[in-house]
Structure formats: structure tokens, C-alpha cells
């Protein structure tokens, strides 16, 4: 059950070069020097694919953003930014984001320790050829003091419909914030919580070791997981018929509609996902629902159709695509 609640784990380290102005205070030439040094170092340590953002089409950047390989800030800086991505898409090193380097590793399920080990090894290698800004007392120096010290953010993506539907979200958020954990929407700072997806991550970066931070986020994620399981049980005990009706109606609309927007489809698919998780609907391949949630954004629909569609055409294509995938998936 944990696997369906904890979707993925991500660890990122923020690093900067000594004696170079941070990205928010740089000029074009200095930023390009950082990018060149970064790509030289990265090309030596692993078989990363290196991309300068200015050479990528906006659709490609948007797709990388949706896949959490890059951030919105990297796109905002696209005239000076770049990214190195591992062939299996688990590691990406952003260059000239808020910090010169944002090194991240993302793995499925609850896997923070492994993700940290992978990114820490790459960080060690990079630190041999790059002169990172580091202070004996404050640790790794970052553009924002909220990241100074370890430069670490460990986050877990969680699917929490039970906690939302039982109105426990605010209580949960205020409880975990006392532990030094914050809860945000699926795409980080300022993003909304779509489809019951939330990111759980550490608030602080200094005064605790990387291992302690990873352990804190992991243990909190497991506690939230228990709470979600209890909330789902509560929903089943008290509102099973209404909930089942809602899940099946969602499935009905998704299977039969003629056009549908991304947000409506995400909301309905999330209900079906919950229904499948708690056996209110039996699907041959429940994984197909997760795949659909990932593949129905405007960018992904354009890619699937091999065309640049307008909004109405995308809504038609999306409905047809979802209907086709769901057809015969119900037992």
C-alpha cells in the first residue's frame, strides 16, 4: 500500500562556485563562464547528456519541467542556463538556476537514502574539479540563506486523497511543520496541489547532517502514510457508497466523454486512482491510471498526437486517448 501513497523520492544539493557572483547578481559573460566550467567538469565524470537551455525548444523545456528534470527558474534563466541529464533520467544537474548548481536525483517510491548516496557521489566528483563556495562554519554557501549548510532538500511526492477528503490536510500540515517539514504542491514552491499530490520536504538545511535530514523526511513521510491509510479506512467505513459512486462516475466520464481539459481529467483520474487503491473499482492494470496522469498535459498531448494542436483539439484528443486506454481495463 505504501507504494501507491509514496510516489517518488527526490534529493537535491545546492552548490555555487567560489568568487563568482550568484546567478541573481551575474552578467551574461560571467554566467557563461560558469556554464562552460560546469559542462567541462560534467563531461568528464559521467555520460550525461548536456543541454544549453537556449538551444532547446520551449516544448522540450516544458516537458522536462513536467518530468521534474528541471525547474521553472531554470527556464526563466534560459539564456544562460543549462542542464546535464543521466541517460536513465534519474539524475539531473541544473546550471545557473538560483544557485550555480542544483544537483538532483529522483527515484521511484520511498528511496531517499539511495537518492542521496547517488547524488553525493556525483557531488564529490564535481568538487574535485570545481571550486565550490564553502565556509568552515556555515558549510556550502548558497544564494538564499534558507539553503545554506548542507544545501540539501530531501522531498517525497505523496498521493494523499484520504487526508484531503477527510479535511485533515490543515492539521497534518501544521503538525509536520513543527517537526521542520513543509508541504507543498506537486511542482514545488508556490505550486497548487493538483490531483491530491503533495511534496513533503525539509524546511532547514543548517545545523543537522544530511543523514539526519534524510531520516527526518523519511520518517515523517511514513507517519503521513499511516495517517493516509487511516483516513482511507475512515472514508470506507463512513462513506463507502458515496465514495464508490464518485469513483465510478469519474470512470464513467473519463471512458465516455467527447472532450476534456487537463485539470478535469487529472481530478477524475485521481479519484479513479484512489478507487483502485482501495478496491472500489477493479482494474486489470491500475498502473495505466498513473501513466495517464503523467501523459495528459498539453505538452504531452501535442507530443502524442505528433501535431501542435489548439486547446479545443487537445481536449478532443485527450478524451479520445483516455477513453481508448480505459476501454476494457475494467474487470
Amino acid at each position: 500500500m505504501n507504494n501507491n501513497i509514496i510516489v517518488s523520492s527526490r534529493v537535491r544539493l545546492a552548490r555555487n562556485l567560489k568568487n563568482q557572483p550568484f546567478t541573481n547578481n551575474t552578467d551574461f559573460d560571467k554566467a557563461n563562464n560558469v556554464l562552460t566550467s560546469a559542462f567541462n567538469a560534467l563531461s568528464e565524470i559521467s555520460n550525461f547528456n548536456l543541454y544549453k537551455c537556449k538551444n532547446l525548444k520551449s516544448e522540450m523545456l516544458e516537458e522536462m519541467l513536467e518530468d521534474h528534470l528541471i525547474s521553472g527558474e531554470l527556464i526563466n534563466n534560459s539564456d544562460i542556463s543549462g542542464v546535464a541529464i543521466s541517460p536513465d533520467n534519474t539524475v539531473s544537474i541544473m546550471v545557473n538556476e538560483e544557485d550555480h548548481f542544483r544537483e538532483q536525483c529522483m527515484l521511484d517510491g520511498l528511496n531517499l537514502k539511495r537518492a542521496y548516496d547517488i547524488i553525493s557521489d556525483i557531488d564529490n566528483e564535481l568538487s574535485l574539479s570545481l571550486d565550490f563556495a564553502y565556509d568552515e562554519k556555515l558549510g556550502f554557501l548558497t544564494a538564499c540563506p534558507t539553503n545554506v549548510g548542507t544545501g540539501l532538500r530531501a522531498s517525497v511526492m505523496m498521493f494523499l486523497p484520504g487526508i484531503v477528503l477527510t479535511n485533515n490536510l490543515e492539521d497534518m500540515i501544521s503538525t509536520v511543520s513543527k517537526l521542520g517539514i513543509c508541504v507543498r504542491g506537486a511542482y514545488g514552491e508556490g505550486s497548487s496541489a493538483s490531483g491530491y499530490m503533495f511534496q513533503i520536504s525539509n524546511q532547514f538545511s543548517l545545523g543537522k547532517s544530511e543523514e539526519e535530514i534524510v531520516q527526518l523526511v523519511e520518517s515523517t513521510a511514513l507517519k503521513i502514510c499511516d495517517l493516509e491509510i487511516k483516513a482511507r479506512k475512515l472514508l470506507l467505513d463512513n462513506n463507502k457508497d458515496a465514495l464508490k459512486d464518485e469513483v465510478l462516475r469519474a470512470y464513467g466520464i473519463l471512458s465516455n466523454c467527447y472532450k476534456i481539459s487537463t485539470s478535469e481529467a487529472t481530478e477524475l483520474l485521481s479519484k479513479v486512482k484512489l478507487g483502485a487503491d482501495i478496491d472500489l473499482i477493479n482494474l486489470k492494470e491500475p498502473q495505466l491510471i498513473d501513466d495517464l496522469i503523467k501523459n495528459i498535459s498539453p505538452i504531452k498531448i501535442n507530443k502524442l498526437s505528433n501535431k501542435v494542436l489548439n486547446e479545443n483539439e487537445r481536449d478532443l484528443f485527450r478524451a479520445e486517448y483516455i477513453g481508448r486506454v480505459l476501454k476494457n481495463n475494467r474487470i
Binding site: K137, L138, G139, P145, G149, L206, G207
Partner: peptide
């Protein structure tokens, strides 16, 4: 904003 004011994590292994 931070629980401590001294870095206790990984050192720059230079």
C-alpha cells in the same frame, strides 16, 4: 530559520 548555526554535515572534500 535554521535549527542550528553551525554546519555539521558533509565537508567539502578538497
Amino acid at each position: 530559520i535554521q535549527p542550528g548555526n553551525v554546519h555539521v554535515g558533509k565537508k567539502l572534500n578538497l
